[in-house]
Amino acid sequence: MTTFHLYSFAAMLLAALGVYGLITRRHLLRKVMALNIIAGGAFLLLISTAYRNQGAFPDPVPHAMVLTGIVVAISATGFALALIQRIQKQLGQRPDQEAGDENPDQTETSRSGP
């Protein structure tokens, strides 16, 4: 069992755990956390792959890929959390808002859905 195999196994288990959390957890915040755990697993796989190179230094290409991935993950997470906040705000106001505020929007969505 080499270090590479140890960590890549852990990476795969993390990813599987994240997928399980994403499917079974209902709270949105937890879904976002589950996605971040999957991302952690994917990153760990890449970094352990880079570590395999027993030469002078680890392979820098996966490192660069993971850095890019981290930026993408924080962007998407921030966006998702902002959306959750906004949804919460509008659901919280729902009883009042449905009568008045949403009328101008009817061009996009009709409220008389199926």
């Binding site: 080499t2 590479f4 195999h5 890549s8 196994f9 990476a11 795969m12 796989l45 792959t49 880079a50 395999r52 190179n53 027993q54 030469g55 230094f57 680890p58 392979d59 820098p60 290409v61 996966p62």
Partner: peptide, 14 residues
């Protein structure tokens, strides 16, 4: 299984 089949040492693009 996939990870287990990977070689221990590889260079990639290093």
């Amino acid at each position: 299984t996939a990870v287990f089949s990977l070689p221990d040492t590889a260079n990639g693009l290093a």
